[in-house]
Design a binder for these strands. Structure first.
Lengths: 205, 205, 205, 205
DNA sequence: TATGAATGAGTATTCATTCAT
DNA sequence: GATGAATGAATACTCATTCAT
């Protein structure tokens, strides 16, 4: 009810719609009605559809934002001078995103593949770069090509989702990182000191 | 209209329905109509609903069978004298099931949790036993409790599904086993010879 | 409520739907809801859509029947030995159809052009034959080609519709026939005796 | 925001709305949204609705103008000293209007009947006068009363629309005039010389 | 007991109209 | 007066489930 000019209000509506959609996504995945979204966001159906012409468009918008955020994470990993550390930063960053997004992330992962496949593909190719560096630096076990590593990354996301549901985000991201790092890094690359505060405790030797 | 051995016919109908449903599940997940199932199974809607009062009941039946099969796998793992080998047998068996069931497994995994939670829980507790033996035998890294290990097993299933979609079942199960074993088994437990034919090639240390 | 086997019932439903649709079309043109049609036909939405997958499909079905009927009329006109009489038979028959169909005919005319254009075109080409015979027989004024005559026929249908609304079907078809015949037939072709019972009174030479 | 001569601006807005509406009517009949009209007219929705409280009001306004123009045509016909020539002038004038308005005319004809029936009726009564003169002058075939002649005029409008769609405005108006004149004028009234430049060519003998 | 036609509540989307700025 | 964002009732179509034959 407190408005500061039409534009601000419209922007707020759009934001409220996106927030409500993210909530709904986290709570119930994809299975809710546009009507309920409108009610939660406290806008009419018309406003909802003025902002997003289709339920899929709405998913595309949210998935797109998530993808953009992921690209930021990937770039940060690439900026890390040490290749192995870059891989760890990637994991850290992606799981942090997943922790924030909760269950919505899984639904959006599917949506991204379905509604904005090019962007998803481009993100995948960017992840390749992180692993390429690690392979070139010799910190990856032999026999694993880059595309496979990137796809393992995606698989690990699912692994994370399952564990988060069952044991909460902390344990999930710890295990996912631990498992992947043990699974792909070359034995000696793993001997170095722990990268982050809550990273080591679980892997007693 | 004139039938001999009504019972046998009814049993065949039920079997045809289950087969058709498994096919559909593998092809399109959960997104198909009961009408199409009836057509594939070559029965009327009435017969379909006489056998399964609900779409969920149908899922429950299929998921239940899968769970029963999983219990068989688990029991085989428990029958293995060597604890570490038991864990490997478990993975082997479960991924073999997943390979056979294809994409249907994911849908059924969700269904099982939703519609027959007790059976799913009981299977989970049975998996615990496999890992309990491994923990007791000291072949598991420290800091990992049994419940967590069992849930990692479930997460690994998702990991497997993703990889199977992207790289086929062979690579998926190899990577999933590799990753888990590297991630959870104690370093020296892993030093032993490869358990199966297509297990080693990928992990050139 | 009185049923003689499923098939008969289903056929009756389809017929009731078509009847109700024709009614609605006559009363309100195209502007009514599928729900109302279902109610009038006393069937559920599902039955309605089982029979006609789309509102347009329904129109296509009704328009198709009308077109088929029209083809019958055209063929009867072609069967008439005398060419001029053939033209009159054509008018007679088409207006009789329009009289029966009432206002629905206009809506269906548009629908036919939109949803079954090939059938409509084929009917048009068949009407050409009637006029071709008349031209060949020299009973048509000079300067009028066959395609134009056929299209005049269509225009005359609209003329008829308007007049029917304002003066009733009797006057409408009399005027339409009178006008067309005076407009296109060669003067001497018109000198012959009246073709039908209610044809002459209006044209006192 | 700073405007000089508010009135002129407001008048211009209204005119732009009417022009855009006429365009839209000609292009797509009645099937367009108020939003699109506002965009074409380059005004906001508020301005649009301030000028025309309803889509129907807008139609009424345009149809009203057309009716006024028609009245002008009718009056010109009445001003013609020769009664038969008056009828021809009427046709000429009305078809010229239809040619100018294109497809919009049909939509507006319907709108006029629906939203400003009194004006439409009054125009009809004025057309009666043209035909009354012709009847009185004995240039109309026997058996045709004035009201019927006026309604034939309306039917002929529809005839014209159909032919215009199929053969263009030239042929359409020629045929429509030809047909009506042959259909209603007394034989000897037709013997007189052609009234206008493009009137005769089609009726060879 | 098998059949498949019938049911109807449910869902995404549109568009004339309103009203806060 | 002008603007255009907001409204929400309306509408075509779907699909799990029922039930007359």
């Amino acid at each position: 009810m407190a408005r500061i000019g039409e534009r601000a209000d419209a922007r707020a509506n759009r934001a409220r719609i996106l927030d409500a959609a993210r909530q709904l996504l986290a709570e119930r995945g994809i299975e809710w009605e546009m009507r309920e979204l409108a009610e939660r966001a406290d806008v009419g159906m018309g406003t909802l559809y003025r902002n997003f012409a289709t339920k899929d468009d709405l998913f595309a918008a949210i998935a797109g934002e998530l993808l953009a955020e992921a690209v930021g994470v990937i770039d940060a990993a690439l900026a890390e001078p040490d290749a192995a550390m870059g891989v760890e930063r990637l994991l850290e960053g992606l799981f942090a995103m997943a922790e924030k997004g909760g269950a919505a992330v899984e639904a959006l992962h599917r949506s991204a593949i379905a509604v904005i496949p090019e962007q998803f593909e481009s993100m995948s190719r960017r992840i390749d770069l992180v692993f390429q560096r690690a392979v070139d630096a010799g910190v990856i076990r032999g026999g694993l090509d880059v595309a496979l590593l990137t796809d393992c990354m995606k698989g690990l996301f699912s692994f994370y989702q399952v564990l988060r549901e069952l044991h909460g985000p902390e344990v999930a991201s710890r295990m996912a990182r631990e498992v992947l790092l043990n699974g792909i890094l070359a034995p000696d690359a793993r001997a170095r000191p722990a990268p982050g505060p809550h990273a080591r405790p679980m892997a007693t030797r």
